[in-house]
Design a protein around this nucleic acid. Structure first.
Lengths: 158, 158
DNA sequence: TATTGTTATACTCTATAACTATA
DNA sequence: TATAGTTATAGAGTATAACAATA
């Protein structure tokens, strides 16, 4: 293989570690890697990370306002409309107009949505296992999860 | 404030924690929050995270092939062209055609680029301090950085 | 007046294919 | 035949403004 002054330079030889923004860049790369694994696992199911997140929230918190779900997931309400549209078209979730405030759409998971969540549970589990394994175990995964939360939960108050 | 059956529901009351994909979603939200802080700090400077990352790599590793820098940062070479174009137009970095392999563009930071890095150092430091503070200290920051690396470095080999 | 959901739109980031020039 | 850089393009994701219905 041809190489001259660059010799056999591998990624690990390149000094990226000393930049402060390394953390931001590592966040970006880690998120890309995890989403890539998720998308490969669910490509056949046509399920995106956001779809799954919404279904999970609706499963645990039925009847939330559309804007509440959006905010809980850090998605702007304008961008959330298409996501709910998609889930409704697939029959996995549904909007119901609130009786007490006709502006509000309350969101619910459907029976099909529940069955779907049950069906994909093994795939979700395998995905999570792969991620945890890369980190060195479930304790490391939970530690990471806690640290990540600190990075944005404090900003919610501002 | 008007609320009916939803009462005074706050974000923290919504159960998002039990979904396995929470990790992926937390990664996404954390990355968004860190980038937002970076962009607010550098909006006046017109510097994006990727620009800063490239300058830092060139500073520590002068003469790398363009594709090597791209790969080190997890950016596809097609998308990397515009980034280098921008840095070159600002006079912060430059391409030099390799003598030994005329296909190769070797990348270097310029004198102006070095001065620029020095100039923005305090802003970078403050940004990093804010992030570290959210995490609870520099040790936590380094711990997080190590965990993030594990999420994507293993994938590089595949 | 303020809020909820919605539409429209623009901008950034990322992914893929194909081209060129060199090797 | 393969590689480095480039171009073009499409697709997500995200952000902002403005509107209708309702409070």
């Amino acid at each position: 293989m041809g190489h001259d002054q660059t010799l056999e330079r591998r990624d690990s030889d390149i000094d990226v570690s000393t930049m402060s923004e390394a953390l931001g860049f590592r966040l970006r790369r880690a998120q890309l890697a995890v989403y890539q694994d998720f998308n490969e696992a669910f490509s056949a199911k046509g399920l995106r990370p956001a779809d799954f997140a919404v279904l999970t929230v609706l499963n645990k918190n039925p009847g939330l306002k559309q804007s509440e779900v959006a905010e809980a997931l850090g998605i702007q309400r304008a961008n959330f409309v298409a996501i709910v549209d998609g889930l409704e078209q697939k029959g996995l979730a549904e909007r119901r107009k609130s009786d007490t405030d006709r502006r509000v759409q309350s969101l619910f998971i459907t029976e099909d949505g529940l069955a779907y969540l049950k069906e994909i549970r093994p795939i979700v589990q395998e995905h999570d296992d792969r991620i945890s394994e890369r980190l060195g175990g479930r304790e490391a995964r939970n530690l990471l999860s806690d640290l990540l939360l600190k990075l944005y939960e404090s900003r919610d108050e501002e």
